[in-house]
Write a protein that binds this DNA or RNA. Structure first.
Lengths: 213, 213
DNA sequence: CAGGAAATTGACTGACCAGTCAATCCGGGA
DNA sequence: TCCCGGATTGACTGGTCAGTCAATTTCCTG
């Protein structure tokens, strides 16, 4: 059987993949470890061979994916492009993460990011790092005169991420129409809303590339 | 004892008040019904005399408070003032709700609003109503030419509420400094960020090409 | 092919807790 | 004073699951 053919190390990954499906479907709390094992076509006990606890599975899922995101944001921050483009790249990356793997993103958003009580609390530092990186982009743009100073970088980061999270949550729970068009629309709207409020408008006419359409 | 002096109907309220404290302290899931009963100085079973289930307690807390908020938002929408002021009034009201009763607001935000999985799902309609009301304010402002049309009212409402929720969450979990000054600052920043991006700036649809001199 | 370590299995345990219920209390009306 | 019905009590039940562990299989090594 292909299943049992899989090497040992693969089993761990199979369990992680199954966990994404199971957690996304029933929610972390309502999901039993046996659900994960079943989904992975693996015996109950094997889950505990690879993971110390149910919690550790979710932690692993989150940390792995979040670090990729952090690396991308950090990288984007270094780019030599207008801040508006940086923010667009970030919102696009997050939304594409969701488009590419809705179940995983659902789990991360719903069970970690929006559950500051339990798992979010354990990862505040990782989450705060994302805020900080976005804040840096804003601060740099303020120094360059591209963004106005009325709103603190920290707050701008909050609002930016807040908009993204609301949109994702809307999709996840079917409260917002979903589709290729909506994804692209959202990427644009997020940046438009936030930057419209951050862009220096009256004072310094910064060359934010009047070319781009 | 003042406690036992309380009339029968008051007991129900005592349980609700105790639930706020208990849920806020330990989180709804981690909080046992016995914790609520203890906090209320009441026997375990009495909780079930007044409420059908643990869930019903949370539902009651949410619905009561949320309806007050909805009424306020609806009322504010009717006012004959600039949209920016309306939005400020709304963000101020929500933040003041939090200032006045942090525990209750914490429970509502953390256990209902941010738990779309469980309780949020049961109250989507009530939550959606808030979005709709805010969206109406934006739409009206767009018709009046005060807000630009790049961003749909629905999305604007999302971003607006998203910013508020992020700030509240930041306070609730101690990730953001808190205090009178910060409350006022936040009310202003939320509106400034969002409206800056919604306000029609110079009659120019695209501020990118903002006039220089 | 023997030996053993790592992988795999799934029945079982221990703890937890929402919700039930029979018993008791208490205030007020006859 | 007696009686009734609602208020109040808290021990108990039933069901759920995370996590354990001894037994079994698989597979590599010599």
């Amino acid at each position: 059987m292909a299943t049992s053919r899989a090497g040992a190390a693969d089993k761990r990954q199979m369990i992680l993949d199954a966990a994404v499906v199971a957690f996304a479907e029933r929610g972390f709390h309502a999901c039993r470890v046996s659900d994960v094992a079943d989904e992975a076509n693996v015996a109950y006990g094997l889950v505990y061979h690879y993971f110390r606890s149910k919690d550790e599975i979710l932690d692993t899922l989150f940390v792995e994916r979040w670090n990729i995101l952090l690396a991308f944001i950090s990288q984007t921050g270094q780019l030599d492009v207008p801040p508006r483009e940086k923010l667009h790249a970030i919102s696009a990356a997050i939304i594409d993460f969701y488009r590419y793997d809705p179940a995983l993103m659902k789990v991360i958003i719903v069970e970690v990011m929006r559950s500051a009580n339990s798992f979010g609390l354990r990862h505040v530092d990782l989450i705060a790092e994302a805020y900080a990186l976005i804040g840096e982009i804003v601060a740099k743009a303020q120094d360059a005169g591209t963004f106005k100073r009325e709103v603190s970088p920290r707050f701008a980061a909050l609002a930016f991420y807040g908009a993204i999270e609301q949109v994702l949550t809307g999709w996840i729970f079917g409260m917002l129409p979903e589709g290729e068009e909506e994804y692209e629309q959202a990427k644009r709207s997020i940046v438009e809303t936030i930057c419209g409020g951050l862009d220096e408008v009256g004072g310094v006419p910064r060359p934010t590339a009047a070319s781009s359409g």
